[in-house]
């Protein structure tokens, strides 16, 4: 059965788009039919992160308004057959997304795909609530930092009240994805630890994505980290998170590419 997943955060710039792309690739690599939907109208980025910016013809708003058929707007990934993208519009008219229109598009996507992953805009306004509206599962992307944790708490409140699922009185499945984590700094007490964030937000942990320059490199070239055949630390973290989304129980680790002193001396990669 199709699952609608929203990737949300409240605070901006914490890694929603990065996570949407990386998890989408990971799930599609596992053989699932996946579509990534960019809800960040006016500030679309997902097409760039996916390396598909030159293939955008129609977008979500065109489909919502009935100016294009869904099939015309979907961009099939060239690297992974089972992955598609429904881009956002670059026009700034975010009011062009109507509740009914979005509901219709999501319903249509559910007939075609196993996973519908919605990349939410930042904030707690209409754009964010529209993106979460039809979700079955939510990923709350959080950085180990006070303002991000606070905003995540707000978003959790919205997920429990403003979604269709919540309104039907059902439990909204929420997962914490801790991104840009620096284990060494957390250990030194310079940064909130995983346990701190978990204790405060008290939703189950889906994964811990380490801070890594690989993420920027990936977005530079339009190839999410999980595409690589030799996965980096953040890629391994995202691959594990995707498996957990599929219901696998895996041990939680913080993958690292960092070379210890020994690794540095001998030029080897520490596990």
């Amino acid at each position: 059965m199709a699952k609608v997943l929203v990737v949300t955060s409240g605070k901006g710039g914490v890694g929603k788009t990065t996570s949407t792309a990386a998890l989408g690739v990971a799930l599609a690599k596992g053989g699932k039919n996946v579509v990534l939907v960019d809800f960040d109208v006016g500030l679309r980025n997902l097409d760039l992160v996916m390396g598909a910016e030159r293939r955008v013809v129609y977008d979500l708003i065109n489909v919502v308004q009935g100016d294009a058929k869904l099939a015309q707007a979907l961009i099939r990934d060239k690297r992974i057959q089972t992955l598609s993208l429904l881009p956002a519009s670059q026009t700034r008219d975010k009011d062009a997304l109507t509740d009914e229109g979005v509901a219709r598009v999501i319903a249509e996507l559910k007939e075609k795909f196993d996973w519908i992953i919605c990349d939410s805009p930042a904030g707690i306004e209409r754009g964010a609530t529209l993106a979460m509206r039809h979700a079955d599962v939510a990923i709350v992307v959080t950085n180990p930092e006070v303002s991000s944790v606070r905003d995540s708490d707000r978003i959790i409140g919205l997920l429990d009240s403003k979604t269709e699922k919540a309104e039907r009185g059902e439990h909204m499945d929420k997962h914490l994805l801790l991104t840009r984590y620096d284990a060494a700094r957390a250990e030194r007490g310079e940064m909130l630890k995983v346990e701190d964030v978990l204790e405060i937000l008290s939703i189950p942990l889906l994964g811990i994505i380490p801070e890594s320059e690989e993420v920027l490199r990936a977005s530079n070239v339009g190839a999410p980290v999980t595409l690589s055949d030799t996965p980096s630390a953040p890629a391994r973290a995202y691959l594990d998170a995707a498996r957990r989304l599929n219901g696998e129980a895996l041990e939680m680790t913080v993958p690292s590419d960092r070379k210890g002193l020994f690794g540095k001396l001998f030029g080897r990669r520490a596990a």
């Binding site: 930092e145 006070v146 957390a186 007490g189 310079e190 909130l192 630890k193 701190d196």
Partner: peptide
């Protein structure tokens, strides 16, 4: 530089 407990 243990500011994290304060943050918490």
């Amino acid at each position: 530089n243990t500011s994290a407990p304060v943050a918490r």
